[in-house]
Design a protein around this nucleic acid. Structure first.
Length: 494
RNA sequence: GCUCCCAUCAUCUAGCGGCCUAGGAUGUCGCCCUUUCACGGCGAACACAGGGGUUCGAAUCCCCUUGGGAGUACCA
């Protein structure tokens, strides 16, 4: 019973311009499943709707997917032996296949005008009847069909859905599903413009490309029986199916543009890194069976399983996404990767003279204060600009600066500093230590004045590393300024 | 309307008959740590939709009700 066929999955989006988050998750699960089984992950472009074509959409899609770290193994620009991978370039193939169905009596020509169909639907709707084609052309005589064709009448080709049949299949996430063929419409296979419909092209291509597992969104469950009927009409083996739960808006409707961003590009352009998005999306509808929440792509490949995919839809929770993103920036990203993400935002003139190792060190000490890369900018520029007298005289700082021992403290630090060739974080640390020992100043009245003098703020990251970045001269000047403000404040209050 | 699917904290979820006085995470609120801000640690509040069965025993199995969702196109 166990299939020995190689695992081949596919991601088959229609190129509508941007990449929907739901698409990314579908693609991700397909990718993970394929990789886990040493299989092949295929990208196929479903562009049979000529009216919805968007220029550049395919290129954008491919670049986004590779940016996310899951490029396709087979597909556009990466030909396997099953191309072409654009449905619009496979028209001849579909034509041959319908012919087959027409000849075997599984499909028929339908000459009904769209207006008739619309009217039919309206009537059915009014009477609360199930909607569907009334099979008007299903049993047209061959002569009539020939005559109509000869007259050049517009036509579509429909599937002749068998009556009174139960269609049963096992969905890998939902279990056994059952449908009554009498409720299934005689599906259009070829549109009057000669293009195949999704249903037809999809089945033909999946078979043609040897797809072993069809993993797609839940919106496709109800059309799966149609697809199965098609496989049967051709006498083909059906692939396995797995339908993924929908990703939902906060109001529990299908995730849509109306209620906020749904394009991955937008998230990528904003503050979210690829790692966060992949990790977060993976966990929307799937769980590892443990409490673990952080996974990189590689880890997902080994952990993923369709059995652990949940059946119910999942609300896209931006709060948790934000949290996960900040966790990635604070600690889960490798240091080099973090630096790479953050550096474009640290492109500040004043930093040009800093040695890159010191800059890296400073960026790294700022790391746990960051939720997203651009936060670094504000954080840095704040410390980079020398505190102004106004700042130092502000309530927050002056409370610290008016401490009496500051006089001795600043004098001490300045003189020690002057004796140094250059300032290192350890150098300043030991100066502080001796200030504590020699002057007997400690705790808040030791560290806070130093912090205020150097940064003009009462809170922030580790001052020592930062001081190294500033350099000896700048530190001296900041200390002298703070010292002066201290003296001024003290005098004024006397 | 019809068909199909789904149903545990506000949200993501664990749970596949006894380990459940239901676990984790986000968010919220406390406390601790930190001479700052964070990070971090600890804790609190918060859920098995309702009703029937089955069983010695049900969040877990069955049925009904209710609620939600998807599909119902010459769109995918």
């Amino acid at each position: 019973m166990k299939s020995t066929k190689p695992t081949r999955t596919r991601f088959a989006p229609s190129p509508t311009g941007y990449v929907h988050l739901g698409s990314v998750r579908t693609a991700l699960y397909n990718y993970l499943f394929a990789k886990q089984h040493d299989g092949t992950y295929i990208l196929r472009i479903e562009d049979t709707d000529q009216t919805r074509k968007v220029d550049g959409a395919v290129e954008n899609l491919i670049s986004v997917m590779s940016q996310l770290g899951m490029p396709h193994d087979e597909g556009p620009y990466r030909d396997g032996s099953n191309g072409p991978y654009f449905q619009s370039k496979r028209l001849q193939l579909y034509a041959n296949k319908v012919k087959q169905l027409l000849d075997s009596g599984h499909a028929y020509y339908c000459f009904c005008a769209p207006e008739r169909l619309t009217r039919l639907r309206e009537e059915q709707q009014a009477q609360n009847l199930p909607q569907g084609y009334d099979k008007h052309c299903r049993d047209l005589s061959p002569e009539t069909v020939q005559a109509n064709l000869k007259d050049g009448k517009d036509f579509v080709i429909r599937l002749k859905v068998p009556q009174d049949k139960k269609i049963v299949f096992t969905d890998l996430v939902r279990g056994q599903l059952e449908f009554d063929s009498n409720l299934i419409d005689d599906q259009i296979l070829i549109k009057s413009d000669g293009f195949p419909t999704y249903h037809f092209a999809n089945v033909v291509d999946d078979h043609d490309m040897d797809i072993s597992h069809v993993i797609r969104g839940e919106e496709w469950v109800t059309s799966t029986p149609k697809h199965i009927l098609l496989y049967q009409a051709f006498g083909w083996e059906t692939p396995s199916f797995a339908h993924l739960p929908l990703i939902l808006n906060p109001d529990r409707s299908k995730l849509s543009k109306r209620q906020g961003d749904v394009a991955v590009e937008d998230f990528l352009k904003a503050e979210f890194c690829e790692e966060t998005l992949i990790n977060f999306l993976a966990l929307l509808g799937w769980n590892p069976g443990s409490d673990r929440e952080f996974f990189n792509l590689e880890e997902l490949v080994s952990e993923f399983s369709l059995q652990k995919v949940s059946k119910s839809g999942a609300v896209f929770d931006r709060e948790k996404l934000n949290w996960m993103n900040s966790q990635y920036h604070k600690k889960y990203l490798p240091e080099q990767r973090f630096l790479e993400l953050v550096k474009p935002y640290a492109n500040i003139d004043k930093l040009k003279s800093w040695s890159s190792s010191v800059l890296d060190k400073v960026l790294l000490t700022l790391r746990n204060q960051i939720d997203k890369p651009e936060d670094i900018k504000e954080l840095l520029s704040f410390f980079l600009s020398r505190p102004t007298v106004d700042t130092l005289r502000g309530q927050e700082c002056s409370d610290i600066l008016k401490i009496e021992s500051n006089n001795r403290l600043f004098r001490f630090i300045v003189s020690q500093l002057q004796g140094l060739d250059s300032l290192s974080s350890d150098g300043l640390r030991s100066i502080t230590r001796s200030a504590q020992k020699d002057l007997g100043i400690k705790g808040k009245s030791l560290f806070m004045p130093l912090r205020v003098a150097l940064t003009g703020a009462t809170s922030g990251p580790e001052v020592f590393v930062f001081a190294e970045g500033l350099g000896k001269q700048e530190c001296l000047e900041r200390l002298l300024l703070a010292h002066k403000v201290h003296q001024d404040i003290t005098q004024e209050s006397e």
